[in-house]
Amino acid sequence: MRGKNNKPKYSRQETLTAYLFTVPSFIGFVCFVLIPVIWVFIISFRQYNVFTGASVFVGLDNFKSILSDSRSVSALKNTLWYTILCSVGNTGLGLILAVLVDDILPKKVSVLFRSVYFFPSLVGLTFVAIIWQSFFQTDAGVINYYLNLLGIDKVGWLSNQDFSKVAVLILDMWKNAGISMLLILAGLQNVNRGLLEAAEIDGANAFQRFFKIIIPVASPQIFFVMIMNVTGALRIYESIYVLSGGGPGDSSRSLVMLIAEKGFTSFDYGSASALSMLLLMLIAIVTVVQFVGSIWWVHYE
């Protein structure tokens, strides 16, 4: 408070306390994230024998072999497909649900529906996936049964290479849109009711109010949810693992699934590490692009 600088100055003591608070999470970060990432980086240039722990430096061989492997290319394509559709789908559906429970539904039911939409995020995916698998069965599944009533032919949700990713997308959105809804809902609470009423009196219709007021005010939350969904979709694993196992063939396999297969089935840690580094770079690039892009549409108060 002294001097010309009007920025509040914290005492040494306070700064120290603040750092102390961050220590536990920082130690966790170093031990379980930073060190493993460095280790993966080193291993990606080596051939590593899991059983003996011996390793040989092989330069860029691991990277060359994965880049020339058609399986990694198809896994990369699938991952990008998931990234675009899952993130847009989850964020979009989350936004729609959030507006629905915040604005459109009457207050009393909205509490109920808030829980209903959030519920899938709470249940263990492994168990629910068994139910989804039986929904998606080609010959005895519920979904095909109802499609059949509508006059639509049987769809091989899990056995047709064109539909397996769609089945994963449906499960992923069912599972994750609830979290997006909850986070966006927090942003919607910031929207000033007076502002909306004023706009209404000035003759703004529902769409104008949505795009000119609600979205800009809630944009920091939407942006956060978008980043979360994009990084989540880039490393999508669980939803595929439990539903289609990556199949049929390689048609729904993501990069992370391929990493797990190379690492823990083939015990080829070198290639798995090289793939992980590629994925890390991909996530870094996408995140930077999103941050740069956000300058134009995210408004901080």
Binding site: F29, F32, T231, L280, T287
Partner: peptide, 12 residues
Amino acid sequence: AGVMMFSMTACE
């Protein structure tokens, strides 16, 4: 976001 990105990459 940086921290989050790292912790998310760590394969579960």
